[in-house]
């Protein structure tokens, strides 16, 4: 589904990713862990198509197509979803309206008929249960005045409605208390299917107590320096990122 080959990228001439290789197949959950400044969010931003990053080398194939050539909205319509680390507030724009427009843009792209208001509402109500959201949520403007936890829940709720093929969760656990973390993680787990994949980006291991990854990768100084199964996350938790840093310093 996703093949990242030797991806090098930076901002304003400063290199952040220094040759990332990562392959994700349908049905898999991958976790990318790393200390602050290792390039985790840069990776998510480049995959989603945010402006301001220069890709200097490498390639990203998404279902066999050059992802980096696509506009952000095209990527989204092709099923790539980014759960934002900092979801953006859009005052005045009703959440239901926003999500309906998004879903219909995606459905239209797939050649499926657009949902009318009633069909959409019944779909949404079903998905809301998944995230334990209150109904008044839908009447509020997108993320405006939401608490940190509500914003993150809203991201996963949108993901539930849009049913992406590849979901990238950028530090979804940050700012969540333990109860919210559980709700969000359960939501994510229930969205897992054999034909989709998830890339979970996180600093801490705790999210991975709830979302069990098939693969864990450690991103350090712009490169994936170690890959393994879920036990790698536990090892990291125990030994800390210093362990990686020292190890890297030795090999260098």
């Amino acid at each position: 589904m996703l093949e990242i080959k030797n991806l090098c990228a930076g901002v304003e001439g400063r290199e952040i990713l220094k040759g990332v290789d990562l392959t994700i197949t349908a049905g898999e959950v991958h976790a990318v862990m790393g200390p602050n400044g290792s390039g985790k969010s840069t990776l998510a931003a480049i995959l989603a198509g945010r402006e301001g990053y220069e890709v200097t080398q490498g390639q990203v194939l998404y279902n066999g197509v050059d992802l980096l050539e696509m506009d952000p909205e095209e990527r989204a319509r092709e099923g790539l979803f980014l759960a934002f680390q900092y979801p953006v507030e859009i005052p005045g724009v009703n959440s239901t309206y926003f999500l309906k427009a998004a879903l219909n843009a995606i459905r239209k792209h797939r050649g499926e008929p657009e949902l009318d208001a009633l069909e959409f509402l019944s779909l949404v109500k079903e998905k809301m249960k998944l995230l334990e959201l209150r109904e008044d949520f839908l009447k509020r403007p997108v993320n405006a005045g939401f608490s940190g936890g509500e914003k993150k829940r809203n991201e996963i709720f949108q993901m539930a409605v849009l049913e992406p093929k590849l979901a990238i969760l950028d530090e979804t656990d940050s700012g969540l208390d333990i109860d919210a973390l559980r709700v969000v993680a359960e939501g994510v787990n229930r969205l897992k299917r054999p034909d989709n994949a998830q890339l979970v980006i996180t600093h801490y291991q705790r999210l991975l107590n709830y979302i069990i990854p098939d693969f864990v990768h450690v991103l350090f100084d712009g490169r994936i320096v170690r890959s393994g199964g879920k036990e790698l996350a536990l090892e990291l938790e125990e030994k800390g990122y210093d362990w990686i840093a020292k190890h890297e310093a030795v090999t260098a």
Binding site: E73, A76, F84, V88, A101, A102, A105, L162
Partner: peptide, 12 residues
């Protein structure tokens, strides 16, 4: 940021 957020949800 707002525009990118909308783009990322599939909106022009």
């Amino acid at each position: 940021d707002q525009i990118f957020y909308c783009n990322q949800r599939g909106l022009e």
